[in-house]
Design a protein around this nucleic acid. Structure first.
Lengths: 139, 139
DNA sequence: GTAAAGGTTGCAAACAGTTGCATCTTGGAC
DNA sequence: GTCCAAGATGCAACTGTTTGCAACCTTTAC
């Protein structure tokens, strides 16, 4: 089933309003393949909805984060990126030298999550982890 | 030996100038016990050096990061914190609900670092890791 | 349908942090 | 000590993001 429909239900049933602005933002998020910034969302929505303010986008993204529908990632270039995570979580390895971004499967973090829970009784919510360092070519 | 002296030598020998501004900033960083924001550094330096501009503080912190002398941490409250890390690295567990910050020893990350190097040939530089989630009381 | 309650929007202003640039300072060579 | 090149500073302008607030819209109850 369409993930946007799912998202709409979750927004409604959590007591939030389903506004046209939010529908446009969800549409852009769903249509975008990768990670998209607030400003990119804005420029894609503007043709269809010129008065939609960038602060509404930030507030919608904040709400989607809180509902567990979207993930925020800091790729280290000064702006945050967002994506709906219908397709499961993943993480990023970012090379501090050449800027290359590699995707990282969630599984590799499982032992760390388990250790944090066992030793610190802390349930880590690692949906947006960015790990900086040096890639193979820049070691 | 005093860590500030060490830092001064590293700054000099890396081709950077040792300016009074930088000495004041180092002094504040050394005197501060925990994690301090750029604005806090500014207000502590201002009495002694009113013209020292906040952008100089940001640029000094950037240099200290690059030289491996200071660490930047995002504790999730909208401003970045800094500390000299003469005392070894450590990380943070931050509760998304109550905001509690717990320190985390570096050792717990060793298996993850090893796995990243082995499977991705990526040398992770995890000096500033903040892990968000729920603490024991807020599970 | 209408009304009320509460959530949401657009706007402007604020905030943390960064950047371009002219001026000044530091460290090194002499 | 003087001179010079490279680096650093202060300032103002800018970027990305957040926030306070009045006006507005969505939802639920009737």
């Amino acid at each position: 089933m369409e993930p946007r429909r799912q998202a709409e239900n979750i927004i409604r049933s959590s007591g939030h309003h389903l506004t046209p602005q939010r529908l446009f933002i969800l549409e852009v998020l769903e249509a975008s393949d990768g990670h998209i910034s607030a400003e990119e969302i804005h420029s894609r929505v503007r043709p269809h909805y010129p008065s939609l303010h960038i602060s509404t986008i930030y507030r919608t993204l904040e709400m989607l984060k809180e509902l567990g529908l979207a993930t925020e990632t800091d790729l280290g270039d000064g702006k945050l990126r967002y994506h709906l995570h219908e397709k499961g979580y993943h993480h990023h390895l970012i090379c501090e030298k050449c800027g290359k971004v590699e995707e990282l499967d969630e599984a590799i973090l499982a032992p760390l999550k388990a250790a944090l829970l066992r030793k610190h009784r802390f349930r880590a919510d690692m949906r947006h982890l960015a790990i900086f360092g040096r890639c193979q070519g820049c070691l």
